[in-house]
């Protein structure tokens, strides 16, 4: 591989990593938009009547990612929430998502009255202060600008079975049977029902990912075919096959490092509170890993199968 074609390969690696990161960000943002348009419920949410403690233990046992909501007395715009696993991120324009480690935390819309005390923003509910960790809505001016979500001990009504909304992707059938769910009215699809986004977006995503994978495979093959001539020369000069392979793979990896770091850094800055660092890192590295893998296999195949070289 000469410098020019190596540069071209690095360009392709960069391109497909960007595409992968963009698809991941798109996916999260689209889901968040969808939640924002439907009172923070996805179209999979169901309404059940149970106690918070029982529900939480049932869901924890089935290992499902879900969010459980209950309206708090007094104001319909204030809800308490428990998260199990890793549900889709909520739409936020600043701050961060709720975390399991938060003893008390609040997510509030931009129009919610909050208290400021020594640089700490809090929301007061029944005399208890909940630190505000994030602001709801992809923009400050949003459909959830008056919404409050609280996480904290004792908020769920555990004295008797009461109505709550469970929102999770694949809740265990056994759990569902025990809960006798009824669909939640709010889960009718909200704003998303107005357009065909519900099937357009998954198709776009699926084909986007296929495109990225195909592009990555093609890049790997292209890189392997371009380094073939150099490998032949090295082999004829007496280098060992394994040595040649390692040398070319390491060279490719080294060249990929800088653009990948740049993409990851830019994406982390740009993505805001919508996507976790782990997911960003995964999306950045996935196409590059595939390219390097295909490159290694194809190069090895070319090196070992061509007996005529000797």
């Amino acid at each position: 591989m000469n410098a020019r074609s190596l540069l071209f390969i690095v360009l392709l690696v960069t391109l497909f990593s960007i595409l992968s990161v963009a698809l991941g960000l798109y996916d999260q943002t689209q889901r968040a938009l969808s939640l924002e348009g439907n009172n923070l419920y996805s179209s999979r949410s169901i309404s059940v009547s149970t106690t918070g403690a029982e529900l939480e233990s049932l869901l924890a046992r089935s290992g499902t990612s879900a969010r459980i909501f209950q309206e708090l007395p007094g104001d319909t715009s204030v809800r308490t929430v428990i998260e199990t696993g890793h549900p889709d991120p909520l739409p936020l324009h600043s701050g961060r998502q709720l975390q399991a480690g938060d003893v008390r935390a609040a997510l509030v819309g931009a129009d919610v009255k909050v208290n400021q005390d020594q640089g700490v923003t809090t929301y007061e509910f029944q005399g208890i202060l909940y630190p505000v960790v994030g602001y709801l809505g992809l923009h400050a001016n949003s459909l959830v600008s008056r919404t409050v979500l609280l996480q904290g001990p004792g908020l769920f009504d555990d004295t008797a079975a009461s109505r709550m909304i469970v929102d999770g992707s694949n809740i265990d059938d056994a759990v569902l049977e025990r809960l006798e769910p009824a669909p939640a009215a709010a889960a009718g699809g909200g704003t998303d029902r107005r357009t065909n986004i519900d099937f357009v977006s998954p198709v776009l995503l699926r084909f986007g990912w296929i495109l990225t994978v195909l592009g990555a495979i093609a890049t790997g093959l292209l890189a392997a075919s371009q380094s073939r001539r150099l490998n032949v020369v090295l082999f004829q000069l007496g280098a060992r096959r394994l040595h040649i392979l390692i040398r070319s793979v390491v060279r490719l990896l080294l060249w990929m490092t800088l653009p990948l770091l740049l993409i990851f850094g830019t994406a982390t800055v740009l993505s805001g509170p919508m996507q976790s660092t782990g997911a960003l890192l995964l999306n950045t590295l996935a196409p590059a890993t595939l390219i390097a893998g295909v490159f290694t296999v194809a190069s090895a195949w070319l090196l070992w199968k061509r007996h005529s070289w000797g």
Binding site: A22, L23, Y26, T29, L33, V200, L211, G215, A218
Partner: peptide
């Protein structure tokens, strides 16, 4: 959002 991601897909595809 969809237009943005489609533009990214078009650029990626054309290079490929």
């Amino acid at each position: 959002l969809l237009v943005t991601i489609e533009i990214a897909l078009i650029i990626g595809s054309i290079v490929a």
